[in-house]
């Protein structure tokens, strides 16, 4: 009887979050590109990164950037898989892999950001 029992989640929360994070990423991305490319050294030398990272606001922005980017990107990948009819074991494996790699790389990003010292 309940052969086609599916999740009760319609995905509407995920849709709203995808849109909000997308718009936030758009704003952050404009800032990121200006910051990284107005001079070739600004994004590609340790000194430039170090001097930026003395301001905690840059760390906060970078942390939110990577968190929002990971969420938006991996939720997007999950949305692609949702377009296809999948066995529940496949769904569970895919979403586990996405969440685990996402968490691992986000954590790695945090570790990198916090490994940059405050020099004063």
């Amino acid at each position: 009887m309940y052969k086609y029992k599916a999740s009760k989640d319609t995905g509407s929360k995920s849709w709203v979050l995808q849109r909000i994070t997308g718009l936030a990423l758009l704003v952050l991305m404009i800032g990121h590109y200006i910051l990284m490319h107005y001079q070739p050294d600004s994004g590609h030398t340790y000194q430039a990164v170090l001097s930026r990272m003395q301001f905690s606001w840059y760390r906060i922005i970078d942390i939110s950037f990577i968190t929002l980017g990971m969420y938006h990107g991996l939720n997007g990948i999950w949305n692609i898989f949702r377009d296809y009819k999948l066995h529940s074991w496949a769904k569970i494996s895919i979403i586990s892999i996405l969440i685990l790699t996402g968490l691992a790389f986000t954590a790695w990003g945090y570790v990198i950001i916090f490994s940059i010292p405050y020099i004063n």
């Binding site: 990577i66 790695w108 990003g109 990198i112 490994s115 940059i116």
Partner: peptide, 8 residues
């Protein structure tokens, strides 16, 4: 993330 890891 991987390419910026040498920052550490």
């Amino acid at each position: 993330v991987y390419s910026l890891s040498p920052l550490a």
